[in-house]
């Protein structure tokens, strides 16, 4: 039987860091302009897919960049920054290509239905929203919001991965096994924390200017509890080997 209390005391700081990472991921989802199925038909503002797919795409890219940097450096801020930049690049590319498709393919101007003026550019929005839709495309404010989401989500994901790797470093586990285990735990924690806020916002959000954004404390609190449990389980598995 493994020494549960001993392992937990030894790795308590990593448990807390993983929980913090999970909360950052949960918070980040509120920034990403997710339109879901209506946006795929250009009937709602945002990227035309679900929260989970977007969070996974950006977050997993963040994990890859964080993992790559972790091979050459063990400096935590650098690793977290690498994860954040990876996720920001991925979400930006997704959003810019999405915008090309909406503007040149579907033929709609990017417009938000939630605000009358774009809070960043001050451009009028409501005139450009087609009748019967909830806006379409990605106005500047949504784009900026999405990049902030990538920053927080990628940073959170990298923090989870870094903590899991650090918790396993001293156990003498083979490197390949540790990387595999830490990655899949990070992915699991990432998905749990991407779905919780997705239920909070009801599947669609335009960005930080959306009224639904104010609901974020509920999701972050839920993620705090859920991630803490997952972190305990993950650290016990990795630290107990």
């Amino acid at each position: 039987m493994i020494d549960i209390a001993g392992i937990l005391m030894e790795n308590i700081s990593y448990v807390l860091l993983i929980t913090l990472g999970g909360m950052l991921i949960s918070f980040s989802v509120h920034f990403v302009p997710v339109g879901g199925a209506p946006a795929a038909m250009a009937q709602a503002t945002g990227i035309g897919t679900g929260t989970v797919q977007l969070a996974a795409g950006a977050g997993l890219t963040g994990l890859v960049t964080a993992g790559t940097v972790m091979q050459v450096s063990d400096n935590p801020p650098l690793i977290i920054a690498a994860g954040a930049v990876g996720a920001m690049i991925m979400i930006s590319v997704t959003m810019i290509v999405g915008t090309w498709v909406y503007v040149y393919g579907v033929g709609v101007p990017p417009a938000s239905a939630k605000v009358k003026y774009d809070p960043i550019t001050k451009d009028r929005q409501d005139l450009y929203v087609s009748q019967g839709t909830e806006g379409h495309g990605l106005p500047t404010v949504s784009y900026v919001s999405g990049v902030i989401g990538g920053l927080l989500g990628g940073g959170g994901g990298a923090l989870v991965y870094y903590s899991l790797m650090s918790a396993g470093m001293d156990t003498g586990m083979a490197m390949a096994n540790l990387v595999g285990l830490a990655s899949i735990f990070a992915v699991g924690i990432f998905f749990v924390n991407a779905v919780i806020p997705s239920y909070n916002i009801g599947g669609t959000i335009e960005g930080f200017h959306d009224p639904k954004f104010k609901k974020w404390p509920k999701a972050v609190f839920s993620s705090l509890i859920a991630t803490f449990m997952c972190a305990l389980v993950a650290v016990l598995t990795i630290g107990g080997l």
Binding site: V187, F191, V192, V195
Partner: peptide, 21 residues
């Protein structure tokens, strides 16, 4: 209120952590 895929992904997210543990 959101797509069905989300619930499958949370199932496997919880599942992978619990099963390896």
């Amino acid at each position: 209120g959101t797509g069905v895929p989300s619930i499958g992904m949370i199932a496997l997210g919880m599942g992978v952590i619990a099963s390896l543990f």
